[in-house]
Amino acid sequence: MVHSHNSTAHSLGAGLTLKKKKVLLIDLDPQSSLTFLTLENTPTLSIKHIMVDQENINDVIIKTPYFDLIPSNLQLHLADKQLSSKFAAERTLNRALKKLKKDYDFILIDCPPRLNIFTINALYCSTEILIPCETEILALDGLELLIQTLDQIQEELEIKIKNTYVLPTKVDHRKKINKEVLEYLKNNFNVTDICIRTCSKLNLLGLDKNTIYELDSNCTASKEYQKLVNEVIKWDY
């Protein structure tokens, strides 16, 4: 489960594929940025059709050169209430994933920035949570509240997450505030070994539907996401 940072989900998914892993990405965010980064055209079927309309999950998966994708679209904004009214709504995605015909080494779920029925569905399917956090003061309040809420939900719903990791992003070691926030994150949270530094190439993601590795295999983000991929592979005990 990647908590809302589509460039991280995209780069992690593509990087795992480069390591010969079979990867499925699920876009659970109504803003559907991960879908935009990956696909040229708006797909007919999306995650909404699986979770609300009971479409077969295998019919919704789109094969891309980098990974398999279950896309999202803006219809998901309206699906909250429709899904909430269903029996055992928080386990809908979990039930769907059990019907997958193909085996995957990794399934990454890109979640919306706010906690809702979709995020809870993702929690039920996840073993780890990865929360990208920009190294800015404003990001800290939101991060602490998010982790408290995630812990509370896990306790109330008896969800077993092995680890919750924070991934520091947009790190600029020349800026004093970035260094201070990074230090605070390391002292107060379970931070990944790898941090993602500021890299202008990430702004180009989505233009030609390339991965960060194709855009520039030697840029900072490429090298650091590749290291993150190696770290994530070690989580797969």
Rank of each mutant, 00 (worst) to 15 (best):
C199G: 03
I47G: 03
A9G: 01
N178Q: 13
Y104R: 01
E55K: 15
D53Q: 14
K175W: 14
H173I: 14
K201N: 09
I62S: 08
T42K: 14
D193Q: 08
K86E: 01
H49D: 11
Q226A: 07
S217M: 13
E224V: 05
E134H: 10
H77A: 09
E155A: 15
L182V: 11
C111R: 01
L130R: 03
I212T: 07
D105W: 05
A122Q: 05
A88C: 04
C219D: 15
T42A: 08
Q75E: 04
K223S: 00
Y104S: 01
D105Q: 02
Y66F: 15
N73L: 07
T35R: 02
L28H: 00
N41Q: 13
Y165Q: 13
Y124G: 00
E214F: 06
L76Q: 00
I147L: 10
D27Q: 03
K63Y: 01
K101P: 04
K101L: 08
Y184F: 14
M1F: 06
L34T: 02
L76W: 00
E90H: 09
N56F: 15
T44Q: 14
E90S: 08
P113F: 12
A89N: 03
L76E: 02
A89W: 09
I109N: 02
T164Q: 10
D68T: 09
T44I: 10
K63M: 01
L76S: 01
Y184N: 04
P71D: 07
N116V: 01
V232H: 06
E55S: 15
N178E: 11
N190K: 12
L97Y: 04
D110N: 09
I153K: 12
L45M: 11
K102G: 03
Y66A: 04
K63V: 03
E144A: 12
L157Q: 15
L130C: 06
M1W: 07
T17C: 12
Q148V: 00
D59R: 15
S4C: 09
L204W: 04
D29E: 07
I57N: 11
V181H: 11
I47W: 11
D208E: 15
T8V: 14
L185Q: 06
T38I: 13
F36M: 03
I147S: 05
K98E: 03
K201R: 12
V166Q: 07
F106W: 02
R174V: 06
S11L: 11
N56S: 14
A14T: 06
D105I: 02
N6H: 04
N190C: 09
Y213M: 02
D193Y: 02
N121D: 12
A122P: 04
K186G: 02
C195W: 03
Y213F: 12
I147M: 09
S7G: 03
L228W: 03
L205T: 00
Q54V: 07
L45G: 01
N116W: 05
T198R: 08
I120S: 11
L167H: 11
Q154S: 10
K101M: 12
L215D: 14
N6I: 00
G13D: 02
T42V: 11
H5L: 05
H5E: 10
Y225V: 01
A79T: 05
I194A: 03
R114E: 07
I50C: 05
Y66E: 08
T149S: 10
H173M: 15
I153F: 10
G142T: 09
